[in-house]
Design a protein around this nucleic acid. Structure first.
Lengths: 186, 186
DNA sequence: TCGTAATTTCAGGAATGACTGAAAATTGCG
DNA sequence: CGCAATTTTCAGTCATTCCTGAAATTACGA
């Protein structure tokens, strides 16, 4: 591995983190390298810097493309593919969350709905359905929140996150101001 | 595997999902089973229902305990340990997020801070630090938001999530009402 | 269309992680 | 304390995933 020490530390850490996230170590390392690179890299450059085989890098890049996490670019007069991550880190976050939702949350919701449609055969199944309904409602709540929030432009999103729980204060203020308005409960 | 069909569907799915999350399939299955069980189960019951070896179940339960995801209980007049998940699903969510933060976010933040303390040796390292500062700030933002929000009681948290981006509307209202107050930009 | 550069595929080997049974350790009771 | 029930540990085996080099395929310019 032929990297500046500072970059190497990060690449190794990110590779390990990747493996705790169902992403394999190599893919994590490739992504980390692209993330900090000042300009797009071609596969051979990645091979050289990370000390992986050419085919491994090819597969890793393919996986990252399947996740929409890297962009493919071309340098004029050069036939090789060059890869980079979006400059805007928020774009990365949005893609990551979107893809994970698509692969994990949505199928789980589908399955939960199917299970909840079934007729319970006995008390045990009835109890299980109750629990799974709780889980279903939880996932729906998160999915709904996310569906809403992802539409915010980044500036407003950051504003919201910066407020944290202080939003609560604003809501209380609102409640006091608009008691005549529509209420959630009742 | 000796389970009601409805439960089996869920257990198998959850096991697969677990393996996309750095949790092994067996541990995922054990957790799923405990989650839907109407009463606490002892290790032998888990062995019987999931068709795993006794030692495998023992290791799985140990891991779940390390994550604070299961509770150990005792039945009077019975020496065996019985395990269950919290009745309150929000307690489960809180634990899960808390543990993942502790194991993944916090160490990453520590590493990023260390990297940012170093003196860059060249333009490449300088650029990498710039990118890593962006990542650091992003993680800090999320960590701060989470640190705030986790203190909310569940009712208020649900209220907040239900609102979704409509919170934005309330914030705009607030801005209009309190123009004399502190402003974020400027 | 040919030739070359670049990329992808894939079968097999390497490494990692999961699972098991047997044995050791622990626990609670008489 | 001694015993039996229960749990845990661990070395070995099994399964899965990862990684590689060689060969096939694709893409492009002349």
């Amino acid at each position: 591995m032929q990297l500046p020490p500072l970059v190497q530390t990060f690449v190794l850490h990110f590779g390990e983190m990747g493996s705790r996230w169902g992403i394999n170590r190599t893919v994590g390392q490739i992504y980390a390298l692209l993330f900090v690179a000042p300009q797009p890299l071609c596969a051979d450059e990645i091979v050289e810097r990370l000390g992986l085989s050419r085919s491994n890098v090819s597969m890793g890049l393919k996986e990252l493309q399947a996740w929409n996490l890297v962009r493919l670019q071309h340098v004029p007069g050069d036939r090789r593919d060059y890869f980079s991550t979006p400059d805007d880190i928020w774009q990365i976050v949005r893609t990551l969350v979107e893809e994970r939702k698509k692969r994990e949350v949505d199928p789980t919701l589908t399955l939960l709905r199917e299970i909840l449609m079934q007729e319970p055969r006995d008390a045990e199944e009835r109890h299980a359905q109750g629990r799974l309904r709780e889980m279903h409602d939880l996932f729906e709540l998160f999915a709904g929140w996310y569906g809403d929030v992802r539409r915010l432009d980044t500036e407003r999103l950051v504003q919201l996150l910066s407020l944290g729980a202080k939003v609560q204060k604003v809501l209380e203020l609102k409640d006091r101001l608009s008691l005549g308005g529509r209420r959630r409960d009742g």
